[in-house]
Structures are given as C-alpha cells and as structure tokens.
C-alpha cells in the first residue's frame, strides 16, 4: 500500500519538476500574446539558445579551472539571460515589429519562419549532435527506507522547483507593483489607448520580449543542467509543450501559465508512470483539445469580448 503511495508521490514530484520549466517558458508566450496578440513561435528557440549559452559558459569556466559550482551556475545563468534577452529583443525588432499593423496570420508565419531560421542557424553553428555536460550537482533527499520503498528527490529537482517559484514571485511583484508592470497590464487591455496616454508601447513590447526571453534562459540553464544535453531541436518540442501549457491555463494570464505548466508536467509524468511513455505526447495534446472544447478561453483565461 505505502509502496504505491510512494510511487505516486515520486511521479508527482517528477511531473512538478518538468512542469515548472514548462511554466517558465510558457510565461514568454502568454505575455507576448497578452499584449500584441501573436504567438511568438520562435520563443522555444530562445530557450534552446539559452541552454547553449549556459553550456558554453560552464565549459569555459571549467576549462579556466573554476570549481565553485554556485559561482559557475550563477555566472552561466547571468550570461545566458543577457544573451537570450538580446536575442529576444532582436527577434522582435527584425521579424515582428515591421508587421505589427498587418494581419495576425502574417505575423504568425513570420514567427514560424524565424523559428526555422534560428534552429538551423544553431545547427550550422554548433552541429546537430548532442552536446553533453557532466552533472555538477549530484545527490538528493531520500524519504523512506533506502533499500525498500522510498521517494528520492534530487537536489537538482529541488533547485528547479525553488528557482521557478522565486522567478514567478518576482514576476508577479514586477507586474503588480512596478511602473513598467502597470504599463504592461494597461497595454494588455488596450494598447492603442495606453499609447494615447503617453506610454511608449514600443518599450512595453520590448520589455515583454526581454522578460520572456530571460525566463526562457533561466529554464534553459536549469533544464540543461538537469538533463545534461542540448541539441538544436530541443527548442521546438519544448516550445510546443510550453505553448500548450499557456493555452491550457488561459493564454494572456500569467497565473494561468504557471497552472497550465504544472498540470501538463504532472499529466505527462502520470501517463508515463501508469500507462506508457509512448502516449505521453498524445495525452498532452488530447488534454489541450478537450479543455479548449469545454473552456475555449483556457482554465484561468478571461472570456474574450469581441470588439468591433
């Protein structure tokens, strides 16, 4: 009996780990969608680039002889955030800004093009093979009998969950308290009106892209260290999952993205744990279709009022 409870908790913990990284990436989708109403399809690639950058920094520091793990990870994360947000900013300037007044379909296709471009750019630059990084943080918390049934939660899993919570809390504070956060919220409601009131919407949009990319870089660094590998194709599938999470939770809503990410991670983990791993993705997408059928606005999304 206790055996199966332990197993259940273990699977939930695994699901929460992967789910919190989905949530981090999903924020980028949901904020951009909330303000300019487009799917930033290239966001997953920003996550992938973030992982590459942190790997490069980690490998560089190792070669220079650093051995303090916390400094290394901190530095890797900082550089990764800087470069990834620069990429996010540039993507917006190059591929989306000229299209802001055109139809949504046009912007979406441009985003898909950008995603394909970035993926192949990294493939050509870094090769298509997996690049591996030895695990820096090992070990974990053990609950229960080490030889019998137990739950093992690795330090890395704890770090991922805790970092996610910190990022989310910081973001919530930023959005609710700061001046820029207020401008973001106002722009999400009516971008034309906020513009008239003297807020530079270009800055607001750029900030959104930078925040989204930074969180993606955090997720990239954490997941990169957790799994230890990266290749140019990880961005696409992670982006797809994170977008699914954003839609599940209600696109445009930041708490929704968190909820959606966790829900998706746990459902995947439970599918793999109790059914079979082959159908993990099928369950994820079916969940999305089902939820959209009954709640077209997602779990926490506001029902959309059509403006004419």
């Amino acid at each position: 009996m206790s055996d199966s409870i332990y197993y259940f908790i273990q699977q939930i913990a695994n699901g929460l780990t992967i789910g919190s990284t989905y949530a981090l990436i999903a924020i980028g989708y949901t904020m951009v969608y909330g303000i300019i109403g487009m799917i930033n399809f290239a966001h997953g690639e920003v996550y992938m680039i973030g992982t590459y950058i942190s790997f490069i920094v980690l490998a560089g520091l190792t070669m220079l002889g650093f051995d303090n793990v916390f400094i290394m990870v901190g530095l890797a994360m900082m550089v990764s955030i800087m470069i990834a947000s620069a990429y996010g900013f540039t993507i917006e300037k190059v591929a989306y800004k000229p299209l802001r007044s055109s139809k949504r379909l046009i912007a979406l296709i441009s985003a898909i093009g950008m995603s394909i471009f970035l993926q192949n750019y990294i493939r050509l630059a870094q090769g298509s093979r997996d690049i591996a990084m030895p695990s820096l943080i090992q070990g974990g918390f053990l609950l229960g009998d080490p030889d019998g049934s137990h739950i093992l939660i690795s330090y890395m899993q704890v770090i991922i969950i805790v970092t996610t919570i910190i990022c989310m809390a910081g973001l919530t504070l930023f959005i609710s308290r700061s001046r820029m956060g207020r401008a973001c919220r106002a722009s999400a409601q009516d971008i034309g009106m906020t513009n008239l009131l003297g807020i530079n919407s270009n800055n607001v949009i750029a900030t959104t892209f930078i925040i989204g990319a930074s969180l993606a870089a955090v997720a990239g660094t954490l997941l990169g260290m957790y799994y230890g590998v990266v290749n140019p194709y990880v961005g696409f599938i992670a982006g797809l999952k994170a977008f699914t999470a954003a839609v599940l939770g209600g696109i445009g809503s930041i708490p929704g993205a968190m909820l959606g990410g966790l829900l998706l991670g746990v459902s995947e983990s439970l599918t793999a744990g109790y059914f079979t791993a082959e159908y993990k993705d099928v369950v994820a997408f079916s969940l999305l279709i089902l939820i959209l059928l009954f709640m077209p606005q997602g779990i926490l999304g506001k029902p959309e009022v059509e403006k004419i």
Binding site: A95, I106, G113, I116
Partner: peptide, 13 residues
C-alpha cells in the same frame, strides 16, 4: 532550411 526560414520572414515583411 536556413534560407527557407529566412525567406518566410522576409516575404512576410
């Protein structure tokens, strides 16, 4: 594929 992605963006712009 690189050129393909670039072309999609440039065409849209």
């Amino acid at each position: 594929m690189l050129l393909f992605g670039l072309m999609m963006v440039l065409m849209m712009i």
